[in-house]
Design a protein around this nucleic acid. Sequence first.
DNA 1: ATTTATTTTTAGATTTGTCTAAATTAAAAA
DNA 2: TTTTTAATTTAGACAAATCTAAAAATAAAT
Lengths: 216, 216
Amino acid sequence: MQSFTEENYLKIIYHLSVISNPVQTNAIAERIQTKAASVTDMLKKLSDKDLVDYIKYQGVTLTEKGKLTAINIVRKHRLWEVFLVDKLNFKWDQVHEVAEELEHINSPLLIERLDEFLDFPKVDPHGDPIPDQYGNFADLSFVKLSKLNTHEKGTITGVSEHSSPFLKHLEKLGLTLGKKIEILEIIDFDGSVELLIDDRKLNISKEVAKHILISK
Amino acid sequence: MQSFTEENYLKIIYHLSVISNPVQTNAIAERIQTKAASVTDMLKKLSDKDLVDYIKYQGVTLTEKGKLTAINIVRKHRLWEVFLVDKLNFKWDQVHEVAEELEHINSPLLIERLDEFLDFPKVDPHGDPIPDQYGNFADLSFVKLSKLNTHEKGTITGVSEHSSPFLKHLEKLGLTLGKKIEILEIIDFDGSVELLIDDRKLNISKEVAKHILISK
DNA sequence: ATTTATTTTTAGATTTGTCTAAATTAAAAA
DNA sequence: TTTTTAATTTAGACAAATCTAAAAATAAAT
């Protein structure tokens, strides 16, 4: 069994692995709000427990065991987020912090029953896929809205930024999951995107467009 | 804000206060599965934070602040138990351990919404009262089944022992919350009680009778 | 009122996770 | 290739919560 802290490290390493592999010490330190020296200490510990492969000065990768542990935490996090939104009427920008705590509750029965209670959801309120109990993800194909060309159409199915200010902004613009959009024009000057949503014209910045995920 | 550990101490002190006040160091050590020396250390710390009044060699009592904190943990524990039983189909003997973890999740909004989602329950699955957000309990008047006299009738509304073996035993005997019973005879020899439940005769030991709470 | 037993506290050590400051290694620049 | 810069690790220290063993205080027994 892992401690709360160890679990957080594994989760962060898992998320950072998508961007760069192996994962650098400093990247972890920044995400976990701690110092590089502390990260080094923890990496040694996780390595001793066979949860990561760690090479001095090179970085870390998760072992199979570490990866399964990390995915299980992600699974719990996302299921709790669905619970908070679907059952307790939380807004999608309110769920992250609470789920960060709930994800460490250790009870396989609880998660099994919660999954069932929520009717086996495949994605969380931000469109992120929820792995099954064996760590398998249903593969969903997303494209960043910022990669679409003029006249292309699609449906908003996810976001790649989970901060409350960003999500509130989307909410205000009406850009929520399931909404259908069409690209009208990409403005050369600043890269902003003019799109059609709910029969209205809307201009969003390049920065915003980068974090909206579209499926066709 | 208190740590997980501090919260557990406050909760235990709260529960032990019902039995003896002030609470002794050894009593806490036994309940919390630790050594008396560790308890002393923690009591000093809690005293510094004005959560308990502590007199060397005499014992501790909760301050108003400590009591409110403790009651809030109890509130969370019991609400989560209701959730587990009512929504996730846990048995009443399966909820304690998980609730011990969930009670430390810190989110007032979560608890407020959970309370609403559960339709503002007044008691948990064992019949224990759930305090409101200000720490007030609806006063329920219980009598131990072992205190009833022959021919008295009543309804099972609580238990004062929460271990899984005990609760499973009650379940098997059909002695669950809400059931109406009538005392037929109290056996002099061993203090066991013969009662009528669901039009069946049933004999239960004095030990069991002591932990069943009845209201009339 | 002493002695004995029990309870509680102190003193000092240990573990976990963190830190600062200095040393080392790797990468980038000259 | 040497120098400079950046990233990483080591060494040693610290706070939280715990422990053991010994000392002190209280309660019970003679």
